[in-house]
Design a protein around this nucleic acid. Structure first.
Length: 108
DNA sequence: TCTTTGACGCTTC
DNA sequence: CGAAGCGCCAAAG
């Protein structure tokens, strides 16, 4: 859980990443669902950039009618990310941290 | 205990 | 695209 949050805090503005990737970088391959839960239970006080986490299809994982959906879409747009029908082009906006960055920030 | 339920993901058809 | 199947696993009932 800690690691997951840690990874998320590292996501730079204007970039996004998928649940699955977060899980991978956190050392929990195949546990994307766990990441979503980690986000849900994350303390608001932590100021996590939760909106920068979307699913592997580049889509926002909320119902299109939900308030959360709208909110996330706005936050992303405020960072200069183009969101079409709740979807962003991972090709252009996916965050690809390099090894050094990860190793640097992750204790064994 | 067992079953259902997710802010998910990948492959197949 | 979209739907179906299967994998994954903590929580809640």
């Amino acid at each position: 859980m800690e690691k997951i949050w840690h990874i998320i805090t590292m996501i730079p503005p204007g970039r996004v990443i998928s649940y699955g990737k977060v899980a991978d970088y956190a050392g929990l391959p195949g546990r994307a669902r766990y990441v979503s839960k980690a986000l849900k239970t994350a303390p608001d006080a932590m100021q996590l950039p939760w909106h920068r986490v979307i699913n592997s299809q580049g889509k926002i994982s909320f119902k299109e009618n939900s308030a959360a959906f709208q909110e996330q879409m706005e936050l992303l747009r405020l960072e200069g990310i183009e969101v079409i029908r709740g979807r962003v082009k991972l090709m252009n906006y996916e965050w690809r941290p390099d090894m050094a960055t990860l190793v640097m920030a992750m204790p064994f």
